[in-house]
Design a protein around this nucleic acid. Structure first.
Length: 528
RNA sequence: GGGGCGGUAGCUCAGCUGGUUAGAGCGGCGGACUCAUAAUCCGGCAGGCCGUGGGUUCGAGUCCCACCCGCCCUACCA
C-alpha cells in the first residue's frame, strides 16, 4: 500500500432540484477523462462527485410534491443523478450526498472548529432575500419590475424581506492572506481570465458573510445553536473534505484517508460558481488551518444556438438524448475535443453528427475495420511477425512518439481538445500509411508476403497504442479495440497500460488473435 | 458607469511581440484507389470590406481612439 498523495479531483456537487443536463455531464466527463489519464500514468487517484441536497428550494419543492425533503432528494438522486454516471461511463471513486451522515458530521466539526478559532460571531441582518439564489441580496443588486416590485436580477422573481439573527464568518480577515496566496500561486485559479477576476474581486476588499440561516430547517444544524442551520453554500463546499474523511480522528482509516488525499489537486467548477470556490472556500480552509486546493479550474458554458443552454428556453438537453443516439464514448469524445476547455463552446446536433461521422466512424472506426479485416483475410486472424522496417514504418513510429508526448502534456494541463487532437493526428497518419503501403496489393504477390506481414503488424501495433491513448476518453470503445486486436491475454487490462510508455514499439506480440467485430462507431444517418 | 473577453471563409475556430498572395478542420466540387463503416488518400476550387468608422506607420486582422453587437465580472444614480 502506497502512502503517496493521491491526485484528487472533484466536480461540483450538483443541486438535486435541477434535472441533469449536458452542462453537468460536461463537467463530470472532464473530471473522468482527467482522472482516467492520471490513473494510466500510474498515479494514485481519487475522483469525487455528488449531490447538494439542502436548502429552502429543495424543501419547498418536496413539500409541493407532497413528500418529505429526505424522501424527495432520495428519489431524485436515485432516479436522476446516479443514473447519469452510468450513462456517461464515469468511474468516480466516491459519491457524496450532503444529506449523508458523514457529511453532516464533518460539517458540524468544521464549523465548531471555526467558531473555536474565533472566526464566527453572532449578528443581526435585515435585507432582501432571494429564495432562488438562497442568499441575501444588497438593495443595489435588485432590479425593479414594471409594477414597482423588487426582483432578484438572476431569477427575476420577487425577493422576500428577512430580518435574521445569524452567525457570521469573518471573511474580511482573509483579504490579505488570500491575495498573498494567489500572488504566490498564479496557477491556483485557471484559466487566466478567471484568476484575474478572482484577484480583482479580493483586492476590492472582502466583507464578512452570514453563514447560517434561522428560517430554514432543511440543513445541517449549528452544533452550538440548534435553531439555525448552516447556509447551504457553506455546507455544500465542505463535501470536498467530508467525503474523504474530515472529522474522523487521525488514527482511524477515515482519518488516514483524509491525510492521503487532501488537498484537492483540481476542483472543476463552472464559471458561475468560481467565487465560492476561489474566495470563500480557501478562506474557510485557512480559518480551519487546512491546506488549500492546488487548483480551481473554471470551465465555460455550453452554448446552444449561440446562447447559454437554458431550460426555460427549451435548450436544456439531457445527456441521454445524445448518448441514446451516439453512445457514451462519442458524447465524451465530442465535448472534450470540440470545445476548448475553459472557454464557452457551441453545441449543435449538426456539429455532433459531422464530427462523429468524420472523426469516429470514418476515421478511427474504419481504421479498426480495415486493419482487423485484413489480418483475418490474409493471415487467418493471427497477427504476423513483422519483417525489417522501412522508413515509412519508422516515420509512423516517430509520429506516435511525438503524438503521445503532446497528448500527455496537454492532458496534464487540462487541455483536452489539444490532447485529443494529438491522438487524432496519429490516427490520420496510420490511415495514410495504410493507403500508401497498399497491403491489398502486397497480398496478391507471394514474394511480398514478408512486407505484407510487416504492414499488418504496424497497423495493429498502432491500434494498440491508439487504444491506450484514447482509453481515458472512450473507455468502452477502446476496450473493444483491445479485445479485437487480441491484446488482452498478452498485455492485460487496457486501463492498466501506462500512457507514458505507449510509444515503446513492439508491445503487441505476433501470434495475437485478431478478430473482426461489428462497426466500432456505426454510421448514423438520421439526426434527432 | 467601470473592467474583462469575444465579434476572421457556409459552420466551428487558429492567427505570438505589426511585414511577402489571411489559414485549418468540416461542408461543397474534381481525381486516385478498393483492405475497409459508399470508407481511405490526393489535388485544386470556391470563398472572407478579418464587427463599423477614424488614426499611427513605408506597411495593420495584428497597435491607438470612438462606436455597434454578444457574454462575464463589478459599481450604482434617478
Amino acid at each position: 500500500m502506497s502512502a503517496r498523495k493521491a491526485f484528487y479531483v472533484t466536480t461540483p456537487i450538483y443541486y438535486v432540484n435541477d434535472a441533469p443536463h449536458i452542462g453537468h455531464a460536461y463537467t463530470t466527463v472532464a473530471g473522468d477523462v482527467l482522472t482516467r489519464w492520471h490513473r494510466q500514468r500510474g498515479e494514485q487517484v481519487w475522483y469525487l462527485t455528488g449531490t447538494d441536497e439542502h436548502g429552502t428550494k429543495v424543501e419547498r419543492t418536496a413539500e409541493a410534491n407532497g413528500m418529505s425533503p429526505a424522501d424527495w432528494t432520495h428519489k431524485l438522486v436515485h432516479e436522476s443523478w446516479l443514473p447519469v454516471l452510468a450513462t456517461l461511463d464515469v468511474a468516480n471513486d466516491d459519491f457524496i450526498r450532503t444529506t449523508s451522515g458523514r457529511h453532516r458530521h464533518g460539517v458540524a466539526v468544521f464549523w465548531q472548529r471555526l467558531k473555536d478559532n474565533g472566526y464566527v460571531y453572532e449578528d443581526v441582518y435585515e435585507g432582501p432575500y432571494c429564495v432562488g439564489c438562497e442568499e441575501f441580496k444588497l438593495p443595489g443588486d435588485l432590479i425593479e419590475s414594471s409594477d414597482g416590485e423588487q426582483l432578484c436580477p438572476i431569477h427575476s422573481k420577487p425577493v422576500e424581506m428577512l430580518s435574521e439573527r445569524n452567525w457570521w464568518f469573518k471573511l474580511s480577515a482573509f483579504t490579505e492572506p488570500l491575495l498573498e496566496h494567489y500572488k504566490r500561486h498564479s496557477h491556483a485559479v485557471e484559466p487566466k481570465s478567471a484568476y484575474n477576476e478572482v484577484v480583482s474581486f479580493i483586492s476590492s476588499g472582502l466583507s464578512d458573510i452570514s453563514m447560517s440561516r434561522s428560517a430554514v430547517s432543511w440543513g445541517v444544524p449549528l452544533p452550538w445553536d440548534s435553531d439555525q442551520v448552516v447556509y447551504v453554500w457553506f455546507d455544500a463546499l465542505l463535501n470536498y473534505i467530508t467525503a474523504i474523511g474530515f472529522g474522523a480522528s487521525p488514527d482511524t482509516p477515515e482519518g488516514e484517508r483524509f491525510d492521503r488525499i487532501w488537498p484537492a489537486d483540481v476542483h472543476l467548477v463552472g464559471k458561475d460558481i468560481l467565487r465560492f470556490h476561489a474566495v470563500y472556500w480557501p478562506a474557510m480552509l485557512m480559518a480551519a488551518e487546512l491546506p488549500l486546493p492546488r487548483k480551481v479550474f473554471a470551465h465555460g458554458w455550453l452554448l446552444v444556438g449561440g446562447e447559454k443552454m437554458s431550460k426555460t428556453k427549451l435548450t436544456g438537453i439531457a445527456p441521454s438524448q445524445i448518448t441514446d443516439t451516439f453512445g457514451a464514448d462519442a458524447f465524451r469524445y465530442y465535448f472534450m475535443s470540440a470545445i476548448h476547455f475553459g472557454q464557452d463552446g457551441s453545441f449543435s446536433w449538426e456539429d455532433m453528427h459531422a464530427r462523429y461521422t468524420a472523426e469516429l466512424a470514418n476515421g478511427l472506426g474504419n481504421l479498426v475495420s480495415r486493419a482487423t479485416a485484413m489480418v483475418v483475410k490474409y493471415c487467418d486472424g493471427i497477427l504476423p511477425e513483422p519483417g525489417p522496417y522501412t522508413n515509412a514504418d519508422r516515420n509512423l513510429q516517430d509520429s506516435l512518439l511525438a503524438a503521445s508526448e503532446r497528448a500527455d502534456s496537454a492532458m496534464m494541463r487540462l487541455d483536452f481538445s489539444a490532447g485529443i487532437a494529438a491522438i487524432r493526428g496519429f490516427v490520420e497518419a496510420v490511415n495514410l500509411y495504410v493507403t500508401e503501403q497498399e497491403p491489398w496489393k502486397l497480398a496478391k504477390d507471394d514474394e511480398q508476403t514478408p512486407r505484407l506481414h510487416t504492414v499488418l503488424y504496424v497497423m495493429c501495433e498502432s491500434l494498440r497504442a491508439i487504444a491506450v491513448l484514447y482509453n481515458a476518453v472512450m473507455p468502452a470503445a477502446m476496450t473493444s479495440v483491445w479485445s479485437r486486436i487480441g491484446a488482452l491475454p498478452h498485455l492485460g487490462p487496457l486501463a492498466e497500460r501506462d500512457v507514458t510508455e505507449v510509444s515503446r514499439w513492439g508491445q503487441l506480440p505476433p501470434g495475437a488473435l485478431v478478430a473482426k467485430g461489428g462497426a466500432l462507431f456505426p454510421r448514423i444517418e438520421e439526426t434527432p
